[in-house]
Computed example of a mutant assay.
Amino acid sequence: MDVAPALDPRRLLVFREVVRAGSISAGARRLGWTQPAVSQHLAALERAAGMPLLLRGPRGVEPTEPGRALMAHADAVAARLADASAELEAFADRATGRVRVAAFPSGAAVVLPPALRRLAEAHPAMRVDLVEAEPPQALDLVRAGDADLGLVFDYGSADEPAGDLVVVPVGSDATRLVLPRDHPLAGASGPADLGDLADDTWVAGCPRCSAHLVEAAGAAGFVPDVRHTTDDYVLAQALVAQGLGVTLLPETALQAYRHPDVVVRPARRTRARRHHLVHRPGAQHLPAVSAVVAALRESVPAGPVRRTAG
Rank of each mutant, 00 (worst) to 15 (best):
A78Y: 04
A48R: 10
P58R: 01
A102W: 06
A48E: 14
A120F: 03
F104K: 02
L55P: 04
E62A: 14
A37W: 14
A69T: 09
A120K: 12
A82N: 05
E89S: 13
Q40F: 08
G67Q: 14
A49F: 13
R56Y: 08
V99A: 01
R117D: 15
W33F: 14
A49Y: 14
L112T: 08
T34C: 00
L70D: 13
R56H: 12
P66K: 15
D93M: 10
D83R: 14
L55R: 12
A90T: 02
E121M: 03
D93Q: 13
H73V: 15
V99H: 03
L31M: 11
D83E: 13
V111Y: 05
A69Q: 14
A120E: 14
S23A: 15
A102K: 10
A69C: 08
V61N: 01
A79N: 01
Q35A: 11
A109R: 13
V61G: 01
A28D: 08
A102Y: 05
A37T: 15
A28Q: 09
G50M: 13
G50S: 12
A48M: 05
V61D: 00
V101N: 02
A48P: 05
L116C: 03
L112W: 07
Q40C: 02
A86C: 07
L55T: 13
G107N: 02
G57T: 05
A26C: 09
A115W: 01
P66M: 15
P105G: 00
P114I: 00
S39N: 07
